[in-house]
Design a protein around this nucleic acid. Structure first.
Length: 435
RNA sequence: UCCCCGGUAGCUCAACAGGUAGAGCACCUGGCUGUUAACCAGGGGGUUGGGGGUUCGAAACCCUCCCGGGGAGCCA
């Protein structure tokens, strides 16, 4: 491959001659002084050349450096106050690696961002643009923060299967596939399997894609999305809430620590993220209903929250809000009922601020065999498919709980994006699976 | 499946009340020795989503179909 330098490391090479390998991101000219913005994946760099100070054969290559032409350049690194990244490169050498004619995405201008109908079919190229670059790097940092957080607490990552024999929750529509003549489904949650693994390791989590075949066409939905699902043996509802709160604050902290440049590209209001500190407010479902009624919503106890209600609730707080103890009949069969009020489930959701909606859903699980059997009957679920799950209550059952955090909604919130489709490299949307 | 909004140049959008389809960006030509979404001058580029209708005249009004968007339901 040979030796070359990444733009992100250039501050270490001020005054030195370096080689950069990348792509032409933009260019400007003032006649005898020409500017080429090169990106190399690690960052963006303005390269400068003046007529007479570089060989004419290189100077003239400027015309061929159309958008996204891949190029190798060499030059001396110079500190410069005028440069956004603090450094520029005085060019002495240019080589075109691969030409690029009529790149389909126009030069970055805020008043000229093509709409998703245009960009989604060229997602493979869209990913090269600055905003998308920033989003993917923040996504990476969030994923890393998730792993680091659990690892630091002694969790073991054990991934759940993606091909499953039956519905985990039996409610949402699943993608069906043929498994050697048997029906199998793409997983909509790894949770049930985590309940098994946490009984082996105490604290586990899985992190992978999940699939919902719902005909959802909104800014908050994808057919394929990533979810992290921790499960903790001997945990009760307050422990679950505390762990989720810790995860979210850790994620925000790491993004603020490592992704300032990217947040700036996205024009994210950092002050909103800086407020995300422990403790998060905790309100009961019943309190939330009262609050919404006071705000004029036509909602009664027993109803689930819609998008507008979630937004209204989150607007009451400057950080994520934990809503707990929902009516058990609007929650999943495996959630333990509140011993103080059997109409309630020991469940909790976390709503992100600024109207980003539910990013976490979790609960303490039903650990009593008889009660769980009743629930399976109530929900008309096939008991034989859950025998293995019931075994967890037959052999040393303990209180336990966990939650799922939706990666894409979290990325959308932290990046301040309107739509989750920009938070995943290749979004799978309703009737859209290309590229 | 239902409700709402939209479809005009490659992209983003104008075109008032029905009267000759326009701007910015992209692209091409020329100019400029410090540009940062560079700028200045010029140029090419259109079956106004398709079909039908009303009218002297339709991008605009009506009907219909197609496509796109985001909201409901469900959820992360």
């Amino acid at each position: 491959m040979g030796k070359f330098t990444y733009i992100s490391d250039l501050k270490k090479y001020i005054g030195e001659e370096v080689e950069i390998r990348g792509w032409t991101y933009n260019k400007r000219s003032s006649g005898k002084v020409r500017f080429v913005i090169v990106r190399d994946g690690s960052g963006f760099l303005q390269c400068v050349m003046a007529k007479g100070q570089i060989d004419d054969s290189y100077f003239d290559l400027f015309d061929e450096l159309t958008l996204e032409t891949s190029t190798i350049v060499r030059g001396k690194v110079r500190e410069d106050q005028r440069a956004p990244g603090g450094v520029e490169l005085d060019l002495s050498y240019i080589k075109i690696v691969g030409p690029s004619e009529n790149f389909p995405i126009p030069k970055v201008r805020e008043d000229n961002i093509p709409d998703p109908g245009v960009l989604l079919p060229i997602r493979h190229l869209w990913l090269r643009t600055r905003r998308q670059w920033a989003i993917m790097r923040i996504r990476h940092t969030i994923e890393k923060a998730i792993h680091d957080f659990y690892d630091s607490l002694g969790f073991i990552r054990i991934d759940s299967p993606i091909l499953t024999p039956a519905a985990c929750e039996g409610t949402t529509t699943l993608f069906e596939t043929d498994y050697f003549g048997e029906k199998a489904y793409l997983s909509q949650s790894g949770q049930l399997y985590q309940e098994a693994t946490c009984m082996a390791h105490g604290k586990t989590y899985c992190f992978g894609p999940t699939f919902r075949a719902e005909k959802s066409k909104t800014r908050r939905h994808l057919m394929e999305f990533w979810m992290v699902e921790p499960e903790i043996a001997y945990a009760e509802l307050p422990d679950v809430m505390e762990n989720a709160e810790g995860l979210i604050t850790y994620i925000v902290e790491k993004v603020l620590e490592n992704r300032q440049e990217e947040l700036k590209i996205l024009e994210r209001d950092i002050s909103k993220l800086e407020k995300v500190k422990k403790p998060f407010p905790r309100i009961s479902y019943t309190e939330a209903i009262e609050l919404l009624q006071k705000k004029g919503f036509n909602i009664k106890w027993g109803d689930d929250f819609g998008g507008d209600e979630e937004t209204a609730l989150s607007e009451e707080f400057d950080r994520p809000v934990i809503v707990h103890r929902y009516p058990s009949r609007i929650k999943a069969f495996y959630m333990k009922r509140d011993p103080e009020n059997p109409e309630l489930a020991l469940a909790m959701d976390i709503l992100a601020p600024e109207g980003y909606g539910e990013i976490v859903g979790g609960s303490q699980r039903e650990d009593d065999l008889e009660k769980l059997l009743e629930r399976i009957k109530e929900f008309n679920l096939p008991q034989e498919a859950f025998e293995w799950y019931l075994d967890l209550r037959r052999y040393g059952s303990v209180p336990h709980g966990g939650y799922g955090l939706g990666l894409e909604r979290t990325v959308a919130w932290i990046c301040g994006l309107k739509h989750v489709r920009e938070t995943i490299p290749f979004p799978r949307m309703l009737e859209k699976i290309y590229p």
